[in-house]
Amino acid sequence: MTYPNTWVGFFLPKKGHMKVKSKILDKKSIEKAITRISHEILERNKEAGELVIVGIRNRGEYLGNRIVESIEKIQGIKVPFGILDITLYRDDLTEVAEQPILKETKINFDITHKKVVLVDDVLFTGRTIRCAMDQLIDFGRPSVIQLAVLIDRGHRELPIKADYVGKNVPTALNEIVEVKLTEVDDTDEVVVCEKPGRKNQNLPERE
């Protein structure tokens, strides 16, 4: 069922106008979570000389950057930082509703024998992380890959588990966890929204 005319789209639920159910993290608690994760990363990887942080686009890039800054504040060392764009490795490229925007991957250092901490905003099915690991292994052979996420919302479809979690949030499948960061959004917060009700479920979203 498609609605090609824009005037029909006018009556459809507008994207980004989903019902906000609850705010689970505010600016301060995001900051705290990042600091705690940074401490945990340093504790687990004592020789920070081998540590590298790799953020997964888009939000993971900014979180990863914050972790790098936080580690610099704690230990005074700047760990190498890379960015992964997983688009080309996705297993659902032809099925995704929206066409993903392809961006550059930036890993300007050798990751072989390094301890790589992948950073993403929300851990959900685990498929993004699988893509990221596949891609990472094409870049070299890291000695360890660990995973840090701001939110773990459950519903895994693959045997993947995060090593560092900002907050565990049990969710229902019809909910959406939205992470907003000042680098790209107007505020720092994490909210849980509900997808529009059953009646509208098959309708396309309006941009």
């Binding site: 080309l88 490795y89 490229l93 991957t105 596949d134 891609q135 094409d138 870049f139 070299g140």
Partner: peptide, 8 residues
């Protein structure tokens, strides 16, 4: 990249 190939 060191491995000039993606599975896309």
């Amino acid at each position: 990249r060191p491995l000039r190939k993606v599975p896309t």
